[in-house]
Amino acid sequence: MTTLSDFQAEALTGGEVNLGDYDGKVVLVVNTASECGFTPQYEGLEQLWKELGDQGLVVLGFPSDQFGHQEPGTETEIAEFCQRNYGVSFPMFAKIEVNGPGTHPFYQWLKSEKKGMVGGAIKWNFTKFLIGRDGTVLERYGSVKKPEELRGDIEQALAR
């Protein structure tokens, strides 16, 4: 069975990260963008990370420029934007594709595990996936679902 630990991704600051490093954690995965109407969700994501991180939550941000060219910056610009505007301290990764033929293998897996409103495709920025401590996908949430609205599901996953 495929799980989170079967994947790697490039960190925003460079270098490959084995996602198996997060085994045993509850992981909230989000495709992000700096110039989107949902960008203020960074604040709620950071709050969840700070408040629940010591209980085993990890938030992972994956910038993507596939929706309205809303993540045009370089990795350095993305990192600076996130830090300056939202104090983001959770792990962020290099820009990836979440749809189409260039879809990152991690997102191919996420989408195959939990379909959304438009089948497997990611509809927009700030789509979220909740992964349990066992590395399996528990839930998928659309862009309009605010991070604070996920708290109950996250706490439930942390308690398992």
Score class of each variant (00 low, 15 high):
residue 46 E to Q: 14
residue 46 E to Y: 00
residue 46 E to K: 02
residue 47 Q to K: 13
residue 47 Q to T: 10
residue 47 Q to G: 00
residue 47 Q to W: 00
residue 48 L to A: 04
residue 48 L to G: 04
residue 49 W to R: 11
residue 50 K to F: 08
residue 50 K to P: 09
residue 51 E to G: 14
residue 52 L to R: 06
residue 52 L to C: 09
residue 53 G to T: 04
residue 54 D to T: 13
residue 55 Q to L: 07
residue 57 L to N: 02
residue 57 L to S: 03
residue 58 V to D: 05
residue 59 V to M: 02
residue 62 F to V: 05
residue 62 F to M: 09
residue 62 F to R: 03
residue 63 P to C: 09
residue 64 S to C: 15
residue 64 S to R: 02
residue 64 S to T: 15
residue 65 D to T: 06
residue 65 D to W: 06
residue 67 F to C: 10
residue 67 F to L: 10
residue 68 G to I: 06
residue 69 H to W: 05
residue 70 Q to K: 10
residue 71 E to T: 10
residue 71 E to F: 12
residue 71 E to G: 14
residue 72 P to T: 09
residue 72 P to G: 09
residue 72 P to A: 10
residue 73 G to M: 09
residue 74 T to W: 07
residue 74 T to A: 11
residue 75 E to R: 00
residue 76 T to G: 04
residue 77 E to I: 00
residue 78 I to D: 01
residue 79 A to W: 00
residue 80 E to Y: 00
residue 82 C to L: 07
residue 83 Q to V: 07
residue 84 R to C: 06
residue 84 R to L: 14
residue 85 N to G: 02
residue 87 G to Y: 05
residue 87 G to H: 06
residue 88 V to R: 05
residue 90 F to R: 12
residue 90 F to Q: 13
residue 91 P to N: 07
residue 91 P to A: 10
residue 91 P to Y: 07
residue 93 F to K: 02
residue 93 F to Q: 02
residue 97 E to G: 02
residue 99 N to T: 13
residue 101 P to S: 15
residue 101 P to Q: 14
residue 102 G to E: 15
residue 103 T to E: 15
residue 104 H to I: 05
residue 107 Y to Q: 07
residue 107 Y to C: 08
residue 108 Q to H: 09
residue 109 W to K: 04
residue 110 L to V: 03
residue 111 K to M: 08
residue 112 S to V: 03
residue 115 K to Y: 04
residue 115 K to E: 14
residue 115 K to C: 05
residue 115 K to G: 14
residue 116 G to C: 13
residue 116 G to K: 08
residue 117 M to R: 10
residue 120 G to H: 02
residue 120 G to E: 11
residue 120 G to I: 00
residue 120 G to P: 00
residue 121 A to E: 13
residue 121 A to L: 12
residue 123 K to L: 09
residue 123 K to D: 12
residue 124 W to A: 03
residue 124 W to E: 03
residue 125 N to V: 12
residue 126 F to A: 07
residue 127 T to P: 09
residue 129 F to G: 01
residue 130 L to M: 09
residue 130 L to T: 07
residue 130 L to A: 11
residue 131 I to D: 02
residue 131 I to P: 01
residue 132 G to Q: 11
residue 133 R to K: 15
residue 133 R to T: 11
